[in-house]
Amino acid sequence: MKTIIVCTDFSQEAENAVHYAASMAKEHHYRLILFTLQTVSIHALNAQASAEFFYSQTLKNQKKLEDKATELETLYAVETGYHLASGNFIEELESCIQLHECNFLVMGMAEKTLEQKLLGNCVTTAIHRIKKPILIIPGHIEYAGIRKILFAYDTHKSMTWSSMNDIYYFINEFNAEVEVFNVSEILEDFENVIHDIDLNSGYDLDDIKYSFKMIQSIEVIKAIEEEIRLTGPDLLTMVPYKYTLAESLFHRSKTAIMAYKNKIPLLSIPLNID
């Protein structure tokens, strides 16, 4: 059975993402796995809390997850399990992905804060390190189907067949139409861009409902936001580029920026380059 892992810390935005994922799971017959990373407060560490304390906290968290799984099964009639972990977030999430053989992840995104701007958060870390598609849900969005996808495509960044396969999976899974939206400082040749997509995907674009738009602009983020406003897609799809250490000093990930700013769900597709 196809499986979604949804990350939750029971915050408001995470709870919204859980219900979004459950609605999606009901419509498309997915199995749902709730992933929670157990953390220990600095106060408990400073107080040198006993092993019994940590054990009791684990039992409480397990019960909380079990109750949430039961609630979702009752409300949405979807098979729901849970995975409680402790340790490094990325390592434990990767273990959960392998154990449950998930198709993609769902995560909620909180409003942008100064701390997030300076340090980033679990979502932006996962975007660049997890080798599975991640569906990022703004805190105010409810699931209402995915009928139109805006794919922000950059011909100057490397793409893999695996990445394109993930994109086509979502297009076909939701029977959605897609707009391929290319923003460049120098206006690209249409035929070259279409050839680039065909070359990377191995798919015939005639197999899907698509439109294509190219614009010239140096403000990529603003251009994407304006296209969202004009066309009203249900989902924005982007493939984050992996900057080198030197490049990262001068460039910020546009996918991470859109994850913070986006008003609609964002699907981040990994490059999967080892």
Rank of each mutant, 00 (worst) to 15 (best):
I90L: 13
I90K: 06
I90S: 04
I90D: 03
E91L: 05
E92I: 01
E92V: 00
L93R: 13
L93W: 14
L93M: 12
E94F: 01
E94Q: 14
E94L: 03
E94T: 13
S95P: 00
S95T: 11
S95C: 09
S95V: 00
C96R: 11
C96A: 15
Q98F: 09
Q98L: 13
Q98M: 06
L99A: 12
L99S: 12
L99C: 02
E101K: 15
E101P: 00
E101Q: 15
E101I: 07
E101N: 14
C102D: 12
N103K: 12
N103M: 11
N103E: 14
N103Q: 14
N103D: 15
F104S: 10
F104I: 12
L105C: 07
L105D: 04
V106Y: 10
M107G: 09
M107V: 10
G108C: 11
G108I: 13
G108N: 05
G108W: 12
M109C: 09
M109K: 15
A110W: 00
A110K: 15
A110S: 13
A110N: 10
E111Y: 06
E111D: 10
K112T: 15
K112M: 12
K112Y: 07
K112S: 08
K112C: 03
T113R: 10
T113V: 09
L114D: 06
L114E: 04
E115C: 02
E115M: 11
Q116W: 00
K117S: 12
K117N: 00
K117Q: 06
L118M: 14
L119K: 07
G120A: 11
G120I: 09
G120M: 07
G120E: 03
N121Q: 04
N121G: 11
C122P: 00
V123T: 13
V123L: 08
V123K: 05
T124P: 01
T124V: 10
T125H: 07
T125P: 00
T125S: 11
I127N: 04
I127A: 01
I127M: 08
H128T: 10
H128I: 05
I130T: 04
I130Y: 03
I130C: 00
I130Q: 02
I130D: 03
K131R: 14
K131F: 02
K131P: 02
K131L: 02
K132E: 03
K132Q: 06
P133M: 07
P133K: 07
I134D: 04
I134V: 14
I134G: 05
I134M: 06
L135E: 08
L135D: 08
I136V: 12
I136D: 05
I137K: 03
I137T: 08
I137A: 06
I137D: 03
P138K: 04
P138F: 03
P138W: 05
G139V: 03
H140R: 09
H140L: 04
